[in-house]
Amino acid sequence: MTQTMKRRIQTGVLYALILCVVVLSIFPFYYAVLSSFRSGTELFSSSLVPDFSTIDNYIGIFTAQPFGTNILNSIIVATSVVVLSLFIAVTASYALARISFRGRGLLLMTILSVSMFPQVAILSGMFELIRALGVYNSLPGLIIPNTVLTLPFTVWVLTTFMRELPKELEEAALVDGASSWTIVRRVFLPLMWPALVTTGLLAFIAAWNEFLFALTFTLSNDVRTVPVAIALMSGASEFELPWGRIMAASVVVTVPIVVLVLVFQRKIVAGLTAGAVKG
């Protein structure tokens, strides 16, 4: 076999594998898009050719139920979670990375292990907490548990990142007369943008897609977030599942995430590899 032949086969295999991966990851979404434009018995057709004949499903999710409110809820919850958890994480990571105190290592390990708990394990405890705080069935009742859920991750990532920042910068700022808060705000924050964007976006996605808490801590449809609203969508009769609408809703809520990721893609990669190599 000649070298050229061999190389061609290698390239062929490579592309075949790439195609597999792409098909596997794209197909469910493609199928959702496909189904969202179908209605009635068409839904059960096995054709993979798109047919954009009807947008009834898209209109239906906003008219037949408060899906607009659900989206708004999701936006409010996810945004608040990002803002809250970044604020807490930045201040916490400054302490964890920069101030030496007894039990710092233990605290960091605890934070890391907490992030590994399955959600179900803390569900009942969290439920008690939500009831005690009197925020059951309200948006704050979703913001608090989601923040708790994302914090270990954000704290851990930001602490690692903050540790990489040169100590002399902080000392120079101290000599310049900066307080801890000024150091964080004026010196560290501007240097941490890539890390903030990455962790913020991942926290946003986590809060946006979160299902279990959103299902457990809400009662009425007007405080539900999108994932729960989609899951609890019902058709005209209890024997009918409105597949078309469910698919349309899924497409509507996936698009913003995809757009966000594409916009911040470069930053995410920069953030995830930052500190690996000194620039």
Binding site: P166, E168, L169, E171, A172, A173, L174, V175, D176, G177, A178, R186, V187, P190, L191
Partner: peptide
């Protein structure tokens, strides 16, 4: 604190604030 002692320090690694211009670096204190 260093500020109350009214000292100024020049570090081995310079420790300039990377996101600030030369002017802002000098003006920060």
């Amino acid at each position: 604190s260093p500020k109350e002692r009214k000292i100024a320090m020049v570090f081995q690694s310079y420790a300039l604030y990377p996101h600030m211009s030369v002017f802002e670096n000098m003006a920060f204190g």
